[in-house]
Design a protein around this nucleic acid. Structure first.
Lengths: 340, 340
DNA sequence: GCTTGGCACTCGGTGCGTAGGAGTGCCAGC
DNA sequence: GCTGGCACTCCTACGCACCGAGTGCCAAGC
């Protein structure tokens, strides 16, 4: 068990290292923090902390830097979440309030997070699996060409073109539109397949093929769009990662950009639904992110989280501040979504 | 006027420098290229080329590297556009063919360009100013709540929520929808304001307010969405920029990410509508991009370019290969858009 | 028993001088 | 106009000594 003072020493090391980006020695520590003990004592404490694996020396006779385990202890027991200042809160609210649609909300959220934390921000679009259908629209663009528009309760809109096997009359179209909406509006996406299953049978034989095609497209859209989407921002902040960043930055950029963004999605997915999740260094499954930390939290329009957002930064980050910003932004985005 | 051989020397210097990233000397040149003359002669030619400003020495008694002016001459007179190989062409077509919607087309194009050129790719969405209206849809979501959906001939879909001053009847809605579409379908965005100007007057007094609100929202959407959008990809390739890239990469990332992307839009905007535009180093107006080159070209579904795409890379880039890739991708994207 | 000051030791960073090498510019000869 | 020779420049690498920050350990003190 670590004594109170040793924890205090660890906290001081983390704070100093985060600030200066340089290994911190015993003398410097006593000068900058009121620990009430001499450097020699601190050295003894440091030796213990090092034995326990919380700090390490880059090389003999250098100062100490925190290990992932050290940051973990810091986050779990030594650091609170630093609330944002009132002006910051107001700025967030103002900025998010002026968003015009979902894309805009997500875009603004990303920019905001990146700016507040000066790190790379990642925001997941509200997930469709937990969404409900607000409206399904069918438009006739040409005699045998339809457009299907799907609107979700989170304000997301998806559209698909449909080529009909045979021309489809306007009355049939209105009929289908009405019956479709009667069945699915307000329902969860996952329930839709069952709800529309028997719909084609109630139509004339000649229209049945088209109806089936439409339904197939609808279901396909549901599946396709259930795949999560993300928005990323603030990659310019990667240059702040550290002096040795050429080596660090590469894998991170690659992870951020990688084809289907599975890495990032999994990263956010691993975060718990409620409460903030902090993954530090090697706690991240993806190798390229072994020298980064991820702070993520769920957000939603109601009690339930519909998606997640977070930031990716160097393990050497200001955890209390970052966590405060992430939490605050998530809260406000949730409010905005609830209002719309 | 430069003799044929001196141009040949310049070409050799550019090629070697692009390959090795190191200043190239007279001896190395004669060894790697069949110039048919001795190093001493090459030295004389180099002295002339330096006087003319096409090449420079990083410091006395080092090899030469091309200047922006040297690259310019190389691009204009010495280098062709390297066509892609047949397998590459097939790969492009396959990859783009499987796109499902406009977002997907643009997304795939960006990834493709980034991968082919190993540089940062920028693709502009088909511009709405030159687009025409395919359909306008109005949906009633609640008694006094409408959704406006705008569909363009390039497949782009925009939607807006509208809160009506008073509830709006279903027949009025159908009426408005029909009249609106009768007037604007097939028309250019820029013509729409005039075409709908007198529409409110033909409605009942009680509906007139709502109609005006709807039209105002429509026009607003047109204006807002006329602002160009971009997609960027391949930023991980920035790490390939050069050994001194920490200093180079920062302003570039910032330019790429900057709020409203005006820098990039202007960059692409400066490119001529037809034909490929290459901007080298200081030819770029933006300071942060002074050590990068931009290769851009317009693309479109017909003869006319509806948007542009290109790549941003170090001035030290493989111009023939990059230009070949950019041209080929633009051509195929144009085809895809024309088909859909 | 914990804390403290003292002390020897380690090791990375810096400055300097030297040697090596690549490359140049110039010149005289072909 | 091309070429080989030659002196010169200047960057880079290397070795070396020095300095300083920081450590670990120990014996003395509270």
């Amino acid at each position: 068990m670590l004594s109170e003072r040793r924890l205090e020493v660890l906290r001081a090391i983390v704070q100093d290292y985060v600030g200066t980006e340089e290994p911190v020695g015993s003398k410097a520590l006593t000068e900058r923090h009121k620990l009430g003990v001499s450097p020699a004592t601190v050295r003894n404490d440091m030796a213990v902390l090092e034995d326990e694996g919380f700090i390490a020396q880059p090389h003999t006779s250098a100062g100490r830097i925190p290990t992932d385990k050290g940051y973990r202890l810091f986050v779990d027991r030594l650091a609170g979440v630093k609330p944002l200042s009132a002006p910051e809160r107001r700025a967030i609210q103002n900025f998010l309030d002026s968003a015009v649609d979902l894309d805009d909300v997500v875009g603004r959220t990303v920019r905001l997070l990146a700016q507040l934390t000066r790190q790379v921000a990642v925001v997941q679009y509200p997930s469709l699996t937990r969404s409900t259908v607000r409206h399904v629209e069918l438009l006739s663009l040409a005699p045998a060409r339809l457009m299907l528009v799907l609107i979700t309760d989170t304000g997301r809109v998806e559209q698909r073109m449909i080529d009909c096997p045979v021309p489809f009359g306007d009355t049939s179209l209105a009929d289908l539109r009405a019956r479709l909406n009667a069945r699915v509006v307000g329902r969860r996406f996952s329930d839709v397949p069952l709800l529309v299953q028997e719909l084609p049978e109630s139509f004339d034989l000649e229209d049945r093929g088209t109806v089936s095609t439409v339904l197939a497209t609808l279901l396909e859209t549901l599946v396709e769009e259930t795949e999560e989407r993300l928005m990323i921002g603030g990659t310019a902040n990667l240059t702040r990662f550290g002096h040795d960043f050429p080596l660090t930055i590469r894998p991170v950029l690659e992870a951020l950009e990688e084809e289907e963004q599975v890495v990032l999605l999994r990263l956010l997915g691993e975060a718990e639904d409620s409460g903030m999740t902090v993954r530090i260094g090697h706690e991240n499954a993806h190798e390229g992110l072994n020298s980064t930390s991820v702070v993520a939290v769920g957000y939603g329009s109601g009690d339930e989280a519909v998606a997640k957002l977070g930031v990716v930064g160097p393990t050497r980050m200001d955890y209390p501040g970052t966590m405060g910003a992430v939490r605050a932004v998530a809260r406000y985005v949730g409010q905005i979504l609830a209002e719309s």
